[in-house]
Computed example of a mutant assay.
Amino acid sequence: MLYVMILAIIVLVYVLTRLYFLKREIKRTTRQLNELNKNATAKKIDISYFDRDFEKLAKEINNQIDLTKKAKAEKRSTENELKQAISYISHDIRTPMTTILGYIQFLESDEITPEMRKEYISIVKNGARRLKILLEDFFELSIIEQADYPMKIEMIKLNQLILEVLLGFYEEFNKRNLEPTIKIPDNDIVLRADHSAVKRVIENLVVNAIRYSSGTVTIQLEEFNTSVQLTISNSVDQLSEQDLNHMFDRFYKADQTRTGKGTGLGLPIAKSLMGKMNGRLTAEQMENQLFMKCEWGN
């Protein structure tokens, strides 16, 4: 009986001691969380009393801290991107608007000749067209990025679609004195995707290649065992690593001049559409060639 009482006392002391240290560790952890919530520290939770269950709890708390930090960083990045986008679109709208208003004032003058009036009207029309394209692209991108953006997936012949798009750019190639190199297999390459989305992606990439090519444009279609890859490449004079990294950012232009051609939304639209079709759009540079690669899974 004595041995039973001694054993009971030992067990009780052990339990009470364990509870004491656990309670002390809970208070210590609570204090650390309180300091973290008040931004008094950015340090993760650490424990001094090692208990398997408490270690698991501390690990989950630290995981949640990491997720919270990541969410805050993404929020800051999104806010900065939004501010930059607003700044860019404001600039891109303000520039043609200023031009339009300025030439409208000239048109109100009775002293201008018919030739000058015709020229000013043409400038006003061009400015209005640019505004229309900018606003349409911005609206389209905002719609595409919505989670419920509808996609009509069907079987399409990618060879035929590419050739149709290229035929529509015949005059654009001629204006730039460009003769594209086209490498498309004779056999049909069939793809499950949204026809209009794929067409828009190809159009945007071709426009980008024509606009910024320093002399050559190449369109190549390849079929592999598990994927189909369309590569549209063009020669470039100057393209920094920063330009490459921000290629698909909204309103980003490699020359960083906001009065150049284009809205800076063509590539972001193309990338968003590829993502909606579970495809990939990447950019890479090799020497003086920029490669835009679209990849769909078979």
Rank of each mutant, 00 (worst) to 15 (best):
M292L: 09
T181H: 04
A128F: 02
Q220L: 08
A42L: 09
N204D: 05
G279E: 07
I202Q: 11
L178W: 00
L158H: 00
N159E: 08
L22A: 13
G264C: 02
R129W: 04
S142R: 13
A73H: 11
E74M: 08
Q160S: 14
Y3I: 08
Y14F: 13
R200M: 04
R129D: 08
L273W: 01
A40S: 13
N37R: 14
L267C: 11
I232S: 03
R117M: 06
A73S: 10
L265N: 02
G266V: 07
T68K: 09
I143K: 15
D249G: 11
N288E: 02
I219A: 07
L281K: 01
L19P: 04
T98H: 07
F139Q: 07
L12S: 15
N174W: 06
Q242H: 07
I184S: 02
Y49R: 03
L178C: 03
N80H: 15
E35P: 13
R31F: 13
L19R: 08
L141G: 00
D46I: 14
I45T: 11
L221E: 04
I9M: 12
A197I: 00
T282L: 12
I26K: 06
L205S: 03
G279T: 07
Q64T: 14
L33T: 08
E284T: 05
A254D: 05
H91K: 15
A209D: 07
T259E: 10
K44R: 14
Y3H: 13
H91W: 14
I210L: 09
N177P: 01
T99E: 02
V11A: 15
I61V: 14
N62F: 04
M5Q: 14
S272C: 12
E35F: 15
I86N: 08
H195D: 09
L163I: 15
